[in-house]
Computed example of a mutant assay.
Amino acid sequence: MKRWELVRSALLNDIDAGAFQDGRLPGDFVLADRFGVNRHTVRNAIKALESEGALRVQHGVGTFVADDFVSHKLNSDPRFTYKLLGQNKSVKREILSINETSVEPDIASHLNIAPSALVTEVRSTSFINDWPLATGTSYYPAARVPGLATAFEGMNSPTAALKRCGIAEYKRKWTRITARRPSSQEAQLLRISSSSPVLFETNVDVTPDGLPIKYAFSVIRSDRYEYLIETNE
């Protein structure tokens, strides 16, 4: 067996055992020193594992266990968990806080409510295979979705909570995606460095008759996430 094949086999065993903290492999120099080989041998092993779908190499960022990567198809269906059912991912959402409050004028404008109107503010963090993927805040007009805070009791699913409030159907009106650096609190929640770039997504969901029921923003780990946009031509 060639040296790169031995390295590949050892790395694959580590992947299966969940040995890489945060789903990220050490750098080439560290791995080369560990196995007593040169960097070229390590890169051959990583290239083989990448072609097999076990690893994902993001140039300039690092090498990651592919199981921690999420591909999100952008369309009018806002149900994030539903979209991941076919990707063999374990999806979990942790509710950090739920409050009734007023919001800034721009958020009120997106929700088509008066600036003084109350909203239900839901802060949460989403996890994929027990690793944090995104953290953010959603705002629901209190008058349109009464009792939402109570509806969240015993569950972490916005779709299920909205259904308890009588809203069985809704769709994504628009999504905007930019990039920036995380705040110190966001970096802590996502378990990344404050210098790591993140994706910043804002969106609005509406009822079938076009009435806004949610405005949200999410800070997403860019090393584990991609958007897939399909066009029908």
Rank of each mutant, 00 (worst) to 15 (best):
M1I: 05
K2Q: 09
W4L: 04
W4V: 05
E5G: 04
A10K: 08
L12Y: 03
A17C: 06
A19R: 09
Q21R: 15
D22T: 07
D22C: 10
F29W: 08
V30N: 13
R34P: 02
G36E: 02
G36N: 06
G36C: 08
R39D: 13
A45C: 07
I46N: 02
A48L: 04
E50W: 04
S51E: 12
V57I: 14
H59V: 15
T63G: 05
F64T: 08
D67C: 11
F69G: 02
S71R: 15
S71K: 15
S71D: 01
L74N: 08
S76A: 14
F80L: 12
F80E: 11
K83C: 05
L84C: 09
G86S: 09
G86D: 09
G86K: 08
N88F: 07
N88R: 14
K89Q: 10
K89H: 13
K89C: 07
L96Y: 02
N99S: 15
E100C: 06
T101N: 04
V103F: 01
E104Y: 04
P105W: 02
P105N: 10
P105M: 04
H110W: 02
N112Y: 06
T120F: 02
T120I: 07
T120L: 09
T120M: 09
V122Y: 01
T125L: 08
T125Y: 00
F127Q: 05
I128V: 13
D130P: 08
D130L: 12
W131S: 13
P132I: 04
G136R: 03
P141W: 00
V145Y: 01
L148A: 03
A149N: 04
A151E: 00
S157A: 03
A160S: 10
A160R: 12
L162M: 11
K163D: 11
R164I: 07
R164Q: 12
I167R: 01
A168I: 09
K171D: 01
K173Q: 15
W174Y: 14
R176W: 03
S183I: 12
A187Y: 00
R191C: 05
I192Y: 00
S195C: 06
S196I: 07
P197D: 06
P197L: 13
F200I: 07
N203E: 08
V204C: 14
V204P: 11
V204G: 11
D205M: 09
T207C: 11
P208E: 09
L211G: 03
K214E: 12
D223S: 10
E226A: 15
Y227M: 07
L228I: 15
